[in-house]
Amino acid sequence: MSEQPTRPVVFAVWLIIASVVGWFAAFQLTVEKFVLLENPQEALSCDLSPFVQCSTNLGSWQGELFGFPNPLLGLTGWMAPLVVAVAVLAGARFPRWFWAVFGAGITAAFVFICWLIGQSLYATNLGVLCPWCMITWAVVIPTFFATMVHLTRNGTFTGNEKVKATAEKAMVWVPLATILAYAFIILLIQLRGIDFLGEMVRILF
């Protein structure tokens, strides 16, 4: 089934923004990884405090889950939503199977960052927050929510017109869902014993 006649401009623009931000965060982490490999004892520019740093994450097995640095996944993976978004804005129409594959990729990214959040907070060898990782979390979460709603409204998940119409209306609630997700993560951080808000104030001011 093809996409709705009306182009999802707002969704496409968001994908572009998220892709650029996510790719930049992955690029910065990749650079930091090179620095860490060259000088293992040197503090990285993203080591902002004992609780907010990326050295610990980059040097852990969780930071190379698939046998290579996780940031490389971001460098390649963020190209997909960027290309899709530009194509949509250019007027491209994709079949149902294409959107299903796209949705599967976004879902995999979401599951992966949820796992990384859990590892960052609860793994005994971590217990720190990586600044560039948090930026990645911040763009993957709304991208996942928006993609799931879009795939419902464009007929990828269902052909039921009422469900599609409901999903169309639900898109405006994605920002609220995102804020609630952020609040939940901050709560988990606080419960873990890391004063997230205090750390942010100290780092910024």
Rank of each mutant, 00 (worst) to 15 (best):
L116Y: 10
F184M: 13
R192G: 15
W137V: 15
A167T: 11
L187P: 00
A104L: 15
V139E: 10
E3A: 09
R153Q: 12
R93S: 09
G105W: 05
I113E: 10
F34R: 13
T143E: 13
M171N: 02
E199Q: 00
W97R: 13
P81N: 14
G118T: 13
F11Y: 14
T136K: 11
G91C: 01
K169H: 08
N57P: 00
L204E: 03
V201T: 00
C46K: 10
T156I: 06
L180E: 00
V163C: 06
N70L: 11
M134H: 03
F196A: 00
M200K: 04
E42A: 14
F51D: 14
L176N: 03
W99E: 12
V52R: 01
G105E: 05
V9R: 00
E42N: 07
N154T: 15
V149W: 10
G103N: 13
W14N: 02
F110S: 09
N160H: 15
T107P: 01
P142C: 05
A181M: 07
Y182F: 15
T56P: 04
A123V: 02
A109F: 12
W115P: 02
G91Y: 02
S19E: 05
F94D: 08
I16C: 08
A25V: 10
A181L: 08
N57H: 14
C130F: 05
V139W: 10
V83A: 14
C130R: 03
V163P: 02
T107A: 07
A170T: 08
E38K: 10
P8F: 01
V21G: 01
A100E: 11
V88Y: 06
A146Q: 08
A138K: 02
V35M: 08
T156M: 04
F196Y: 04
F196M: 00
G91M: 01
V201I: 02
Y182M: 11
M134K: 01
T136S: 15
L176P: 03
I141H: 05
C46H: 09
A90Y: 02
V86M: 09
V140D: 05
S19R: 09
W173R: 12
T156V: 10
Q62S: 11
A18P: 05
G63Y: 01
S2M: 15
F34S: 12
L151R: 05
P175M: 09
C46R: 11
I17H: 10
F205Q: 00
T136G: 15
P40G: 03
P131H: 01
F145E: 11
V139M: 13
W61E: 10
P40T: 05
V86R: 04
Y182H: 07
E38L: 08
I141R: 07
L129I: 14
Q190D: 12
A43N: 09
W61C: 02
L75Y: 04
F112S: 04
Q41H: 08
V35L: 06
P131Y: 00
L180W: 06
A92V: 14
L36K: 05
T143V: 13
A165Y: 04
L37F: 03
D47R: 06
V86S: 03
A25Y: 07
A80C: 11
T30R: 03
W97Y: 14
G59A: 02
E42R: 15
I186R: 05
Q53K: 05
Q190V: 12
L89H: 06
A165M: 06
V111S: 11
L188G: 03
S45K: 13
T143K: 13
